[in-house]
């Protein structure tokens, strides 16, 4: 049995590597400062205006019958106890308090809507600038008909996922996943965020309407964030399973070793 020597290929150009790390940083900060902003009114509604008594989703705190505080998450008519993490948890200044997302998940850690907004709108610009620079590569992620046809086979190759080998080109499953994140979820999170701005809404009244109203746009914005975080976790797991150092090197120096 002869072993073919590993080959180094230049996989990621500098613009891709730069926008990858910058938007990764921006997205983490956007999610964490977004949770800070969400804490100011932790409830989601459909439509244009808020129906305060009946949110479709909310995170809150109440007193149990024995007087102890209880944190909860409400989705429709379901209520889940989440004391210690959501609804009632660490306040960032050494105690516990009623707050939707805990101090360790928000920027800043303590409750501060004004500064949470400053972080959010600063890194929103970083993310949008990254998106513009990356756009020429983003369109190449569109899966071709062949990619879609090869998708079931690619899925089988990913079972178990640690058997996936580094390859000079994206496999169909990667293409579909990245296309979904880059071409669907990222535009969704940007546009639904813009729809929350009263000034943007005056310029483009169709934008909040596209999402079912300004309050409904908050649901889209929140949901797109959850989708990005889910992708983030799966992405990290796959990077680790398929050769952590090789993958990290390729996204830092551009060079990937392929068998």
């Amino acid at each position: 049995m002869t072993r073919t020597p590993a080959k180094m290929i230049y996989r990621h150009p500098v613009a891709v590597r730069l926008t990858h790390w910058l938007s990764a940083l921006a997205l983490i900060i956007l999610a964490m400062s977004g949770m800070q902003i969400f804490n100011a009114h932790p409830a989601l509604y459909t439509g244009d205006a808020s129906t305060f008594g009946h949110p479709v989703f909310s995170i809150g705190a109440r007193q149990a019958s024995d007087g102890t505080p209880v944190g909860f998450v409400q989705v429709g008519s379901h209520v889940i106890r989440t004391t210690g993490v959501l609804g009632y948890g660490p306040d960032g200044v050494g105690g516990m308090s009623a707050r939707a997302f805990p101090a360790w998940a928000t920027i800043p850690a303590y409750q501060d809507l004004a500064d949470g907004r400053r972080w959010h709108f600063f890194f929103a610009w970083i993310f949008v600038i990254c998106a513009l620079i990356y756009a020429p590569w983003a369109v190449r992620l569109l899966p071709s008909r062949n990619d879609l046809r090869a998708l079931p086979a690619a899925l089988r190759e990913h079972l178990p996922p640690w058997r996936v080998k580094p390859a000079p080109r994206l496999n169909p499953l990667q293409k579909v996943t990245y296309a979904g994140i880059v071409l669907v979820v990222a535009p969704l999170v940007i546009l639904s965020g813009l729809a929350l701005s009263p000034a943007v809404d005056a310029w483009a009244p169709w934008l909040p309407q596209l999402f079912g109203g300004r309050q409904f746009a908050r649901i889209w914005h929140f949901g797109a964030m959850l989708a990005l975080m889910l992708f983030f976790v799966v992405h990290l797991v796959m990077v680790a399973l398929t050769g952590l150092t090789n993958n990290l090197r390729s996204m830092i120096t551009g060079w990937l070793r392929v068998p």
Partner: peptide, 12 residues
């Protein structure tokens, strides 16, 4: 018109 509070809620 719609009134958008900095906290996130809206009323008309």
């Amino acid at each position: 018109t719609r009134h958008d509070c900095v906290e996130g809620w809206s009323v008309i």
